[in-house]
């Protein structure tokens, strides 16, 4: 069955990534912090923090894209894409919001900085997509459109989050850190990014498949009811 095959691939990939990626990451050298000293070992969090954040942002755009199709064409496929991506924004967003403070505690001495625009906007983004799932769950008829509108507004937040690091001098490291990485850090960094992107893809298609099945089942139930094949 298609579903079992997808689950098999997912679990195999997870198993490989679980072992492979960390071993590369742990072997990479530690960069210097702004004071010129080598960063704490906790810097290793950077490799997967950036990767999960990337997945979360990617997912926001996937969700916004699906929402546009949902709003403009009432496309059920677009709707399925949007809801699958929204759930993954919540999953990867939570990963970002948890791994970030773990590193910050070591490097900055605090878990969270409320004045840091990037941290706060990421939190707002996460809450927006939590609200998206809430609306889908409790919104009743017509909640698809509402949720799509919410997703689009949420997606407007993302460029602002990303650019905020360049425009505001926040405590959060700047995006250009990636360009200035030590060559020995580069390979594991990109590998980690690739591994998490693949993981994202697999999870996304798993969830998308589920949503399409759910939509087809609902259609079949309605059709059977209309044809008088089933008594309810």
């Amino acid at each position: 069955m298609k579903r079992d095959g997808l689950f098999g691939i997912a679990i195999a990939l997870l198993a490989v990534a679980f072992v492979l990626v960390p071993s590369w990451i742990l072997a990479a050298p530690l960069p210097l912090n702004p004071n010129g000293l080598p960063m704490a070992y906790a810097q290793k969090i950077f490799y997967f923090h950036v990767a999960v954040a990337w997945c979360a942002f990617l997912s926001v755009f996937v969700c916004a894209g699906g929402s546009v199709f949902q709003l403009a064409k009432r496309s059920p496929r677009g709707d399925a894409v949007a809801i699958a991506a929204a759930e993954l924004v919540v999953v990867f967003g939570l990963c970002t919001l948890v791994t970030g403070p773990l590193w910050a505690r070591k490097e900055w001495g605090v878990w969270w900085v409320w004045k840091d625009v990037r941290l706060v906007t990421m939190l707002i983004l996460w809450i927006t997509f939590l609200a998206y799932l809430f609306v889908r769950r409790y919104g009743g008829p017509g909640s698809e459109q509402l949720a799509s509108g919410l997703a689009l507004f949420g997606a407007v937040n993302v460029p602002i989050v990303y650019l905020s690091v360049f425009f505001w001098r926040t405590q959060h490291p700047q995006g250009k850190v990636v360009g200035s990485l030590d060559p020995a850090m580069r390979a594991p960094f990109w590998l980690s990014l690739a591994a998490f992107s693949i993981l994202y893809g697999v999870l996304f298609f798993l969830r998308l498949h589920l949503e399409r099945q759910r939509q087809r089942l609902a259609e079949a139930q309605l059709a059977a009811q209309d044809a008088g094949l089933v008594r309810w």
């Binding site: 707002i124 809450i127 509402l146 949420g154 937040n157 602002i160």
Partner: peptide
């Protein structure tokens, strides 16, 4: 719906 969107 409204509060997350107007938080910024």
């Amino acid at each position: 719906l409204l509060y997350p969107l107007v938080l910024p």
